[in-house]
Computed example of a mutant assay.
Amino acid sequence: MRRTNSVRTGESTLIRKDIKSLSAYHVPDSSGMIKLDAMENPFKLPESLKVSWDACLSSVDINRYPDAEMAELRTKIAHHAGVNADQILLGNGSDEIIQMIIMAIDPGTCVVPSPTFVMYDLISRWFKRPVATVPLANDFSLNADQFLQVCGREKAEIAFLACPNNPTGNLWPEETIARIANGFDGLLVIDEAYGPFSERSHTHLVASNVLVLRTFSKLGWAGLRLGYVIGEAETIAHLNKVRMPYNINALTQAAASFLLDHFDLFEMQATEIKKERKRMSKALQTFNGVNTFPSQANFILMQVPDANALFDQLKTHGILIKNMHASGGLLSNCLRITIGSKDENDAVLAAMDDIINGVSA
């Protein structure tokens, strides 16, 4: 019997209802503004490197597919990380790696602290994976035993810990992370996106059920969209089966390989950002009603009397930061400021002096 296609009218019914109910990740327009909302490195590539960098990119044959195994780049990154190349998996930013991990793990609940990086929750929901949250304490500390209890209760298969945490900026004690790593039966992903600005790493915890996730975006390569995950070789080999072919384009591979040869430059920039972070935290605390939280990332979270008002007023001064107030809970009346260059940070302080103290910038 011949089937006829029914005509669909009105709102599309092809999209899953749960997807319709989600909000897309919003990236605000920053044209003409001092952009301090996305944790980017404020320093452009020095002119002294641009000529050789341009020559490197111009040698890439873009008519050919990129190296599917990314052998040279994985070897360089592995050397930089102090592991073997077969322990490295590359992704189009850490977001793609989070997606690969969630897709590859057995069905079951994903457990995350709250608040934390929103993409753990969002990507889990894309794949219909339940998410359970463990609220942080008022000082943003994490109770390891409570976290493990939730993992056990929810029969969790995967958990994410951002170390340092985003958007709070704090780094939980190593004892807390190790307690969870050793006590959790599922896969624990330790996300070190802000590792370059932190006092420690967690690669020593890598095991059959522990991965360490990193990205070059915060260090100064945000435009390349390159992340990587470190794990045991067997785990990485299985995750590689759900990686899309040619996921890292030829220009990114060439650029990253070149930049790794000059990595000391980006380490020096990270040191400068940490110095500015300390200066900014101290300066922000001098404003009436402003409370800053300790940070080991390249941003500062601060709580103010009226986050919405201050956010809008900073925009009128040409400064874009991140308003966390809508998230509610511990983030009520909180704003997150990326650490910029000295001039950009001075502009923030001058604008806040104008807004809060009525001093003309």
Rank of each mutant, 00 (worst) to 15 (best):
A222D: 08
F184S: 09
N288S: 15
P28E: 11
I319T: 01
F293T: 11
S295A: 04
V7T: 09
S52N: 12
A351K: 09
L161R: 10
I77K: 01
V134G: 10
D139A: 03
A350C: 07
E157D: 15
L36G: 00
E154G: 04
H317T: 03
F263S: 12
L211V: 09
A55T: 03
H26M: 10
L148Q: 01
A159Q: 14
G169H: 06
P305E: 08
N209S: 11
S332N: 13
N5I: 15
T116C: 11
S208E: 12
H80W: 10
P305K: 08
P245S: 13
I273H: 01
R125V: 04
I101R: 07
I19S: 10
D95C: 08
I97R: 00
P42Q: 13
E234V: 08
L284Q: 05
K35H: 14
A347M: 07
E344D: 06
T338Y: 03
N288H: 13
V304Q: 06
H80V: 03
N357K: 13
N41C: 12
H204C: 07
M1Q: 09
G91Q: 07
K278Y: 09
Y228A: 04
A283T: 08
K342V: 13
Q313Y: 07
R153I: 05
N138S: 06
A162S: 15
P113V: 05
V134I: 05
F140W: 03
D67Q: 08
L251Y: 04
L331C: 02
V212K: 03
E96C: 02
S198I: 02
A283V: 07
T133V: 09
E232H: 09
T292E: 05
D306Q: 14
F263W: 13
K282N: 03
A307Y: 07
W126T: 10
R129W: 07
A347H: 10
P164Y: 05
F311V: 12
A222M: 04
M1S: 13
V83C: 15
F287A: 02
T75M: 12
A162E: 07
S217T: 06
D145Q: 15
A256V: 14
T13G: 10
E157R: 15
L36H: 00
L213Q: 04
E47I: 03
M352I: 08
N291R: 07
K20N: 09
R214D: 10
Q285S: 15
T286F: 03
P164W: 04
T203I: 14
N291F: 03
Y246R: 04
N323Q: 00
L251W: 01
A38E: 13
V189D: 03
L320S: 04
E192Y: 01
N323T: 01
S94T: 06
P196H: 04
A233Q: 14
V83M: 10
N63F: 08
E72A: 14
A81Y: 10
D312C: 07
N166V: 14
S281K: 04
L314V: 02
C151P: 06
Q253E: 11
G152W: 02
V131F: 00
V112K: 04
A250I: 12
I337V: 15
E232S: 12
